[in-house]
Design a protein around this nucleic acid. Structure first.
Lengths: 188, 188, 188, 188
DNA sequence: AATGAATGAGATTTCATTCAT
DNA sequence: GATGAATGAAATCTCATTCAT
């Protein structure tokens, strides 16, 4: 049949695979040792394709962190969206803090990398702010503003602290703390 | 010529100045853009002196972060050591979280850099753990173990969250939260 | 003897050798195919030393062209400085245009490269203007302003035209033209 | 299906548009920064069409410079063809040198690029020689051989010199010079 | 007839580290 | 004890060219 055939990507998931590989390299080596070569090797794509798909290393990092933030927002949102009352919301928050799903060591490492990189890159700073805002919005479905602020801080701080802690974290303690904060907010 | 003269360093504070300059470069550019040359320029010392005083860049970073951790531990310890009762201790914690002295933007940036680097460097991981342990010990002078864990998380998380937040943080809210946590621990 | 010994360059002419090699590469291949590697190979220095001595390729080209302009100014000036009267000055100009010394093929190639590069580089544009000004000043020692302008144009244009011409240039014709121009200026 | 249909190009001027765009890119950036991508973007044609219509970048440059030379020859020839006597021919030459039409800054830039490229490319060298020959032939309609040679040099050199000169060029001076040269040739 | 996705070769540049002095 | 000139290794990035469609 006549007519010009459009060129078509021969590997449609390549862009995403590169970004995922970038996150893996960041998690394994840190931003400061993340290079085109390592990402390309991990994604099993030729070196040149990185600059074909992206402007440069900064661009890759920005888009990789955006992808991370999206994934985190989504699991965050899902956890809280399914809760039908405050009690279930508290349980969801405890899961976010202690559960093995959300705050995995790998993800904590990536969050640290994103936050430290955000301090030196405007785009990633914006991505970070958005992601925190979205988390906050999910939380606000169930808790009053003051409680949200405090719980936000705990969701942030507790897993971070745990990252460098040998001792495991007691779910009971976390639950009691969240409940106390939720109640406090009602009283004030 | 009579007697050998002991050679004395011609610039005794140089080591420390290099480490302080390293922290400044890290704060300004991030670990991933911290180089010998930038540090030397900032410290106004010859390039060669960096490798004369230190093993390499990793060594400089390790010692710079150790210096940061020491300074932070010290201000942390002082704040809590001066408190004579739980009420004063609560006020001290509120100061750590909200006050302009401890959680400055520059220091938060450095903490993020230290944490992210710690995930890829054993020595800095150890330094980080020690610093968190020392903070915890200071806190334990005034609060029961469970409260300590929760307050630790808040001291960690709240300033971090604030780093990316436009809105200022209410001291009252922080105070109420700390008090609620301290009370909760008594009840349990 | 006590006291610190200063580090000393182990190859003091290296900077100049790099610039001379750059001019050779430009003459052989043109600016558009002038690369760090080719220059380094020609100068027999390691690749890294190019960026040690210079900011980048632009910087090398700027300084190489400045060096070329200096050398040309000097031979130009000498030719005209030695003339003691207008007649000798005319002969000197004829030499500049026809003589095998000044307008060599290699030098003409370099001038073309300098002029074309000057249209896309401020620093080289400035160098070019200065060099033309200096040539003009040398000429003004012997000729009135109007004659200078016309002779300038001829010194510029004739060797350029010859570059692409198979036929040799007649010294007699050049001499007659210069004389006619010098006389014309007196009459006007 | 009845009868084969002859395929027709869907954009008949594309070849020319590419060459014109190439000249624009050369004028703006210089040969050394002229790339397929820049030309394609300027011509608003797909990247692939450049290698479809031309052998490679060298081929594009050669044909673009040939197009330039044709256009210049044409305006050159027209200017001199319309002159009916020596006096008018002199005026035409003055126009070529001073007038705003022929020696525009953009065209001078392109001539410099063509000449410098010609020194490293046989095809463009040939194009350049032909163009100079054609100019010479146009001039020879009105001037004796010796005058032609000198006037050629002036037409070449004066606008080039002006390219790097702040001061404007006096038409009177140019006219006087051309006349002097034309007269000189008669005498000799 | 035409395209644009893809890539390898090579360009520029950065920099930790070495080492002669 | 101290320095800074020097360099190799590797990083980022550019781009002409190829080729499946």
């Amino acid at each position: 049949m006549g007519g010009t055939r459009r060129q078509v990507p021969n590997d449609p998931q390549r862009r995403e695979r590169i970004l995922d590989s970038a996150l893996e390299v960041i998690a394994d080596h840190g931003v400061h040792k993340t290079t085109h070569r390592r990402i390309a090797a991990r994604a099993q794509v030729p070196l040149g394709s990185l600059t074909y798909y992206f402007e440069g290393l900064d661009d890759i990092l920005e888009k990789a962190f955006a992808r991370l933030a999206d994934a985190m927002s989504e699991s965050y949102r899902t956890a809280l969206y399914d809760a039908t009352n405050t009690q279930e919301a508290c349980a969801a928050v405890v899961d976010l803090i202690c559960g093995p799903e959300y705050a995995t060591p790998r993800r904590m490492t990536l969050i640290f990398e994103m936050y430290s990189y955000a301090n030196h890159n405007r785009a990633v700073a914006a991505i970070t702010r958005e992601w925190l805002q979205r988390s906050h919005d999910s939380l606000a479905l169930h808790f009053p503003p003051d409680a949200c602020a405090a719980i936000d801080a705990l969701i942030e701080g507790w897993p971070m602290h745990q990252t460098f802690q040998q001792r495991p974290l007691s779910r009971d303690l976390v639950h009691a703390t969240i409940t106390a904060i939720a109640d406090m907010a009602h009283v004030r």
